[in-house]
Nucleic acid binder design. Structure first.
Lengths: 217, 217
DNA sequence: GTCACAAGGATTGTTGACAATATGTCCCGC
DNA sequence: GCGGGACATATTGTCAACAATCCTTGTGAC
């Protein structure tokens, strides 16, 4: 879903994916000006396409636009990242509770095996693999919760944190702490305990917030 | 904030406010096609402005767009309204808890007087005034909570519910129930009790969800 | 030396025309 | 009578040129 860079895309879609990738990869640093004409030439599309893409990214919260002064890559400060994560906290809590309510046996078995894979990744010292599994787990929980609205909001919030999440994954000792929190979420969902699942999800993101606040600078 | 129809607006802003108003007022019914050229002539702006406005409204969740087939007013089903309200529930819970934490004495005094005004509005049988005060209260709580991120998400969600909220306000007996729930939220915030405020806010929106589900059709 | 002001340059916002795409219809073959 | 394919139409997506706006820089008066 996230990665569909089909060749036959329309100009706007092309500009959109290109810009998303560039911002995510850090090629465009926060605060950098995004001049429509430059981007148009860079991506080989017209200014109108770039313009549409910039509008969409503005709505997604990735770029900032001032009426007659242009667009810049949005800078997400640490306090803002904390506020975003607080919202994620309650929304993921909602999803975890719903998942505990609605999950089928097979879905829960999948979650458990995902948890096992995460445990192995940490044991083997593969932070990148762990990070990928981490995303899988959150996505899976949201899918089970069958809450498209919450899921969309979470996507939106997540999109603004690419830079911070990247920094966080590299902190020593973080994966081990994160792992036990994730396993607690899985256990509560497996127990069909909505309140417990919500509490576990919240505890996890509270811990992410603490880590964020320590790492300011 | 919501109503700024300044005359000197740019074309896109003009189209945006006009479309918002038209959809909110019900002039454009859900499912209705929104043809760019028609709207452009109707509002006296160019197609590009209408286009930009439609993109923004799509991001806001008010209209639906399929790539080469145009835009329609988005239809929000009752189950979807429930899902939206569930998200509101946890986010407003977060804001209420934060408000209980951060509110100054004056701010809390304001909330209490707002609650008094609501009580009077119900006693006097003025549902419209009550509804306005209701919006004021929620806005005020969010302002005290100082959570721009959550606030923005709530705005977005609220925007999709205009039609349903309208129907809900007219239900008999609803204001009285709603009033006591609101007073409970205010009391918990005044007691500086974050957990209690969150629980009260959740209880309130849970009751809204129940009312929504009863009123399907 | 500093402030006010005006010209210049760069960038966004707008306009109208053009191309691409999807839908609906009609006719033809079976 | 029914299904399939080509045409006509309506609508969106794209393009290049124009107008409006804002920032910068340079100049002159005090």
């Amino acid at each position: 879903m996230g990665t569909t860079p089909q060749t036959g895309e329309t100009g706007k879609q092309l500009a959109l994916t290109a810009l998303r990738k560039a911002i995510g990869a850090g090629d465009m640093v926060p605060g950098q000006r995004l001049v429509e004409a430059e981007l148009a030439e860079l991506f080989g599309v017209t200014r109108a396409s770039v313009r549409a893409a910039l509008l969409e990214l503005t709505a997604a919260g990735l770029v900032e636009r001032v009426p007659n002064r242009g667009a810049r890559v949005r800078l997400v400060t640490v306090p803002e990242a904390v506020a975003i994560t607080e919202c994620r906290m309650v929304l993921e809590g909602l999803c975890a509770a719903k998942a505990a309510e609605l999950g089928t046996d097979e879905q829960i078995a999948e979650l458990i095996s995902l948890g096992e894979a995460m445990r192995r990744a940490v044991a083997d010292g593969e932070p990148m693999k762990y990070s990928a599994l981490n995303r899988d787990l959150h996505a899976r929980v949201r899918e089970i919760a069958a809450q498209p609205v919450a899921s969309e909001l979470l996507d939106r919030l997540q999109g603004q944190l690419v830079r911070h999440r990247f920094r966080l994954a590299l902190r020593a000792g973080r994966p081990a702490k994160s792992l036990s929190e994730h396993l607690a979420i899985i256990a509560a969902i497996a127990d069909r305990d909505p309140a417990g699942a919500e509490a576990a999800a919240r505890a996890h993101l509270r811990s992410v917030i603490d880590a964020l606040e320590e790492s300011d600078g």
